[in-house]
Design a protein around this nucleic acid. Structure first.
Lengths: 164, 164
DNA sequence: CGTTTGTATTTCACAAATGAAATATATGGA
DNA sequence: TCCATATATTTCATTTGTGAAATACAAACG
């Protein structure tokens, strides 16, 4: 029995008490929250031996997934889903650890470049097998077609959220 | 063009660089994060006029969805997807605002009951139309069959996460 | 040019969340 | 009864995340 069952039951009671309450959207939003918490906690636990948090991992991986291994804070905020003030803090922490290098841009002196360091790249290579293992276990319950369908529907959901 | 596109492109580059990196699970996990952030921010903004945050709203609604309008912290933690230490803090805040009442249990003196107050109920009635509106807009892009399918797949995903 | 407007990033004070330890109570034997 | 173990909640120090203001530069326009 899923940890979600009690939540779902309480939404059912809410629907009874508030006929205008739209069950389906409410269930989806709660599921997203439960999933996010779980994914976040699991990733934090997995990454602990490497001394980084899940948000820090996300930053490193967004740099890793970029030609040139460098982005500026604004791009990073969008790619990693963080606010820019938080990017500053996370980048500070990653720089202190020597995983990221911060350099001022020449063409536009307002901009800053955050680049993966040698040590950052090495760290990624090091934790990659464990991360791949986790990701595979996480989606192991979904058949490929189901995962593709889920991806499609989540994107549609996100589009709608961003539309207004 | 969705805010997710840059993230997705970077995952594609990562797949090229790390052949073992499983694209589909990684995309799903990122989508969940982006969706959660968005939902969380929108809910916080909507609820601001009523002086409560999204997590506080979740607590109130879980109590509302319970026969007797009362739960103890452990149940609340599970239903709302929060850690128990955080429930203490959120309950403190809601008690201070007079929306929740904390009473010790008689049968088991370790337990505590958190119950919706009169004012809490009234507040829910007050913000309910706005919340229903938000929920409906959020899922407006999904046809009923799609929403149902999405619910089914998210539950399957969550089950797998909780399995290990 | 000089001035306005806009963009990029950081700072700072504060709010939110967490892990681990502490406290209090229950429960089930020996 | 006494003790060991388990459960429920809170405390506390610390980490994480935020909005709003501040800073610094760029770009457009008269």
């Amino acid at each position: 029995m899923s940890s979600f069952t009690p939540t779902e039951q309480r939404l059912a009671v809410t629907c009874r008490r508030q006929p205008a309450f739209p069950r389906e959207p409410a269930v989806l939003v709660r599921l997203i929250k439960h999933l996010y918490k779980r994914v976040h906690d699991d990733a934090n636990a997995l990454l602990k031996p490497w001394g980084i948090s899940h948000p820090e991992y996300n930053i490193l991986m967004m740099l890793y997934g970029t030609e040139g291994y460098a982005l500026n804070p604004t791009q990073l905020a969008e790619a990693a889903g963080e606010k820019s003030a938080n990017i500053t803090r996370l980048a500070d922490s990653l720089c202190e650890k020597g995983l990221v290098e911060r350099t001022a841009s020449d063409e536009d002196r307002r901009k800053v470049s955050l680049a993966l360091s040698k040590a950052g790249l090495a760290l990624i290579d090091d934790f990659m097998p464990a991360v791949c293992g986790l990701l595979e276990r996480q989606a192991a319950g979904l058949k490929p077609a189901e995962a593709a369908q889920l991806e499609r529907l989540l994107k549609k959901f996100l589009d709608q959220l961003e539309r207004g």
